[in-house]
Design a protein around this nucleic acid. Structure first.
Lengths: 224, 224
DNA sequence: ACCTGAACACCGTTCAAGT
DNA sequence: ACCTGAACACCGTTCAAGT
């Protein structure tokens, strides 16, 4: 069974309930927590079975008694991170709720930039992923959107947030060069426009702008 | 110098002009072309120096005479792929030009799904990346948007396209399970909504929807 | 029954030795 | 001057041997 698939998650949950206490006190949760600490500190490349084992005071072979492959570890890591998403306050007006959903998803991913590439490892079907999808979609429905619009809208919104975070957390200081040097590649009329706009733009100007565009468009469909 | 940075690209271009013909007939272009074939056929994980060398009939050490690291190879690979983006037809009306830009970027990435994670390796400053950024931004300016709006709009649009492609090409059949099985994680009221919408939705329904939302929002700023 | 050292088949990268 | 076999320091994963 493919780690991260619906049937895998089912089997995983059964496994968790069936387990007996171990001598070493090592649990899947502890392994995943330590993996996240490692990724946060040194990036996804630093997450190797051997290094993780060393941090936990065991050998790599021992880790395979808790996690059956690196892929499975990544799946658990992602859902662990998505668990940090907080649902929107119930009293918020509709549009503000949608804004909250977008910013919360973005905040959590930006706090753990190393895990971003791992989002591609498997579909987002873990308990925390489905919980936040439920909350997100509910927010859009409460904002007055008909179901068809809300579902497409939620998924498109997630796409936009992920794309923003993908570039923002790439670790090369953004898409524009900090130090272009003389005769740099972007040194022409178009780069003048890019530069002029960015010289005084806050870090999340593009994200806020894109989100506003999107919400304006959504607003037109709210009447449904 | 960091591969992919503006100063690196400058040095790279000089290096290309200064080079003399090699005995084996192996060039950087040939190495990058073969790398793309390999990634298209077997995914990014299959792209190793050793395997690439074998396909080119040499040893791994020899490849290091053309490309100084895997990171550099990825940077060249990305710009190679972005070179397949075709500029919008000059006669298209403004809004259609923007739609073209989004769909072209999406088309090219979907044709080479394996390279998507590598987009994070370095800023997009290669010759083909800057050329298509120039064309894209020009299209938004021609659609009647003031420069500030056009720049933010272009970057937000790229974010959205990348996010869509990121999930669509993940190789696990999308974000929703094909075979949920009995009692699957999403089997509740919200999943009913997701399912109902998706049962008859074409593959790119979410992308088209998000793009329309975004363009509607942009349209309101065109007067600026 | 649980654990794990040692091994297997791979990596990226380097460099001394060859032509 | 150009090339490259062999080595180094790593990987993920397995399994026989230990407790």
């Amino acid at each position: 069974v493919e780690p991260g698939s619906a049937t895998w998650w089912e089997a995983h949950n059964e496994r968790l309930q069936r387990r007996r206490p171990r001598a070493g006190g090592l649990t899947v949760e502890r392994v995943v927590d330590e993996a996240l600490l490692l990724v946060d500190a040194e990036g996804l490349d630093a997450l190797t079975v051997r290094r993780l084992a060393a941090r936990l005071g065991t050998s790599s072979a021992t880790l395979y008694r808790h996690v059956s492959s690196v892929d499975e570890l990544l799946v658990l890591l992602i859902d662990r991170v998505l668990g940090e998403i907080e649902p929107a306050d119930l009293d918020l007006p509709g549009r503000d709720k949608v804004v909250w959903v977008a910013f919360e998803f973005r905040r959590v991913l930006r706090e753990h930039p190393g895990v971003v590439p791992a989002l591609r490892a498997a579909p987002l079907l873990g308990p925390n992923a489905t919980r936040s999808a439920r909350h997100g979609l509910t927010s859009l429905l409460e904002a007055g959107l008909p179901p068809e619009v809300a579902v497409r809208g939620y998924l498109a919104l997630i796409d936009f947030v992920l794309g923003s975070v993908f570039f923002d957390t790439a670790g090369h200081g953004g898409r524009l060069p900090d130090d272009p040097g003389p005769g740099a590649a972007l040194d022409d009329a178009v780069s003048q426009v890019f530069r002029r706009v960015f010289d005084d733009a806050p870090d999340d100007a593009v994200f806020r702008f894109g989100l506003e565009m999107f919400l304006d468009g959504l607003g037109h469909r709210a009447g449904g």
